[in-house]
Design a protein around this nucleic acid. Structure first.
Lengths: 344, 344
DNA sequence: CGGCCGGATTGAATCGATTCAATCCCTGCC
DNA sequence: GGCAGGGATTGAATCGATTCAATCCGGCCG
């Protein structure tokens, strides 16, 4: 029963050619006579031969999969990034291995270890470890990687990110323009660069409007989830001098907030205006559609993958061919109902 | 600069032992003297050695990654499945390669081809191709696979699914119990077994209530997305004898529907009651929380992975050790506001 | 003192595809 | 007829870890 797996030599024997020719007919079809090739392919079909990636990879040293390590697939934003990456990778004939670090630096390190052993073609990573130390093995092994959704100044790595300072500024400028003077910022874990940048932008907008920093009241959260958004709503409503507008660090928080406010009978946007971040699909699918700062998620995935492949190609050439670059994309404010009402 | 990659033989030489001992100290630590092992590990550390998966895999024939092929990560339901699978796989020291077929049988076939070449440890697949033909290569190559989210009667494969007939029945029974007599079923592509099963269950409930099949008005959609839900709303409102309740084949459709109804000034649940399917997180996060049929998504991913690993283990043993099984889980109706109102 | 046992170690064979220098063979040209 | 040129083909060497039969060695027992 247990037929031996058919290898390239079985095909060669059956087709009456050498293994080299069989290999060639796959990898440089032009260098082999058409009828020979046809004969070989027929045998391949008949025997059900499939080439062993591990053998190929051992010999050539290059794998056909790229890894993508995201913080959390439960956030549709990362799914969009993944889709962008998957599409471009597939176009290049590569597979994508999507993994979740769950924001845990140790999980991240584990996965990086797995990737180096696999000698993947490259790694796209949204870092959970702010120190960047867990990426060290990649550098040592010479595996190309691109940091996604975080700006890295280091000239030794490529990165694709979105200007979060501008994003935060856009959101709060918009709220200020609507007449709001007391604004809450429902944020997230302070160790995330994104969170800090968005606050910086928000504060810049506040300052530009001639208001004191206290005009922005920060309500930190641990998880940036819908549930955390609901919790934040309770805290917001408990505030003595309740803000009339809220800027949320992502749309999940904003959705949780909006729902909790609705349940509490607080009208959005009449009593409290809301601006979210990411512009996930669900932001526009609720009864009171969410104003949000859109990030070009799929585009980031696409670009990052392209840069990764470019870097991989450059590896073969002389040293120094590849110039690492930090691409910064611009966010865009998408205004919807949740923020369209002038305050008092 | 370009240091040769360090291999097991470099470690062996540096540590003054043979390659066999180095290999053993990784794979059967007990069979090597503690101090020898310590010395080897020190050298490994110093040289920054990482084992080559491709070489290992070539020799042993077994990979350390399992593949998961889902229809569409944009649907949080599949993300939950993926999370369940990823957790269990990681516990077993394996990586998961998550891929998206986008419901396209040809993409599915492509990916299956990639998986066979990679000789992955196993495949979890939510089939896009109803014929199951694209899975044939897996069987030929003897790669274990488990079909997820679809019942397969074939005694030759394992499957984990949810009883969709019951799910459909629960949903419509609930609406009937609320007094509704004209019910719409916003469905999806007819070639999906899930869609047909849910209709079957819905019709059974209608029949059990002594109503004619026409009491269930089907509105098919092509994509089962939020946008499709909005479209369906327009069609629903255009119906001559407008149903007072709607059963949606998934929550994305239901969310789109609910929003469009809200925008059209049709009150939910007073004028139209809604029941969705999947119970994704967003279903409970909107202003009028959605009644939905919950599927144990993460549990499916977990179970499927376990079955896959069990099957893989059995491969080593004598033939016939592994009994393929079709596990069917039960759905559960989660009642929320969107359906809680008695029809006129 | 010799023989034996068993834990530790050795190292050559092996997995299967790729590569490339060498060979073969045919055609066209002088 | 001889030869250069070139397209097609060959096959042995190679990638790096695993495996297992063979060897080694130190101590224990009779």
């Amino acid at each position: 029963m247990a037929k031996k797996t058919v290898g390239i030599s079985d095909v060669a024997r059956e087709a009456g050619v050498s293994v080299g020719t069989v290999s060639n007919s796959f990898n440089r079809p032009d260098s082999v006579a058409p009828e020979t090739r046809a004969r070989i392919l027929a045998v391949v079909e008949r025997l059900g031969y499939v080439r062993s990636e591990s053998a190929r990879q051992l010999r050539t040293g290059t794998s056909r999969i790229v890894a993508l390590l995201v913080l959390d697939l439960a956030n549709p934003f990362f799914v969009d990034v993944a889709n962008g990456a998957e599409r471009t990778a597939r176009a290049a004939g590569l597979g994508v291995m999507v993994c979740t670090s769950a924001q845990s630096p140790s999980d991240e390190a584990d996965y990086i270890g797995l990737f180096t052993e696999q000698q993947v073609r490259g790694v796209l990573v949204i870092p959970a470890d702010p120190t960047g130390r867990s990426l060290e093995p990649l550098r040592r092994q010479g595996i190309p990687y691109v940091v996604v959704d975080r700006l890295v100044e280091d000239a030794e790595v490529c990165s694709v990110s979105v200007d979060d300072v501008t994003g935060g500024r856009l959101a709060v400028e918009h709220l200020l323009a609507q007449g709001h003077r007391r604004i809450a910022y429902i944020s997230g874990p302070a160790h995330l660069q994104q969170i800090r940048d968005r606050r910086t932008g928000a504060l810049a907008a506040v300052a530009a409007a001639g208001l004191p920093p206290e005009a922005l009241h920060e309500l930190p959260t641990a998880h940036m989830t819908i549930a955390a958004g609901r919790d934040a709503a309770a805290r917001l409503l408990g505030l003595a001098d309740r803000p009339t507008a809220v800027f949320c660090a992502n749309d999940l928080l904003a959705l949780g907030l909006e729902q909790a406010l609705y349940a509490a009978g607080v009208k959005v946007p009449e009593e409290v205006a809301i601006v979210g971040y990411d512009d996930i699909e669900f932001a526009s699918a609720v009864a009171v559609p969410l104003t949000s700062v859109r990030q070009p998620a799929a585009e980031m995935g696409r670009l990052a993958t392209q840069m990764l492949l470019a870097e991989g190609d450059a590896l073969g050439d002389e040293e120094g061919t590849h110039a690492h670059q930090a691409v910064v994309l611009q966010p865009e404010l998408v205004v919807r109902t949740s923020s369209l009402h002038r305050a008092g």
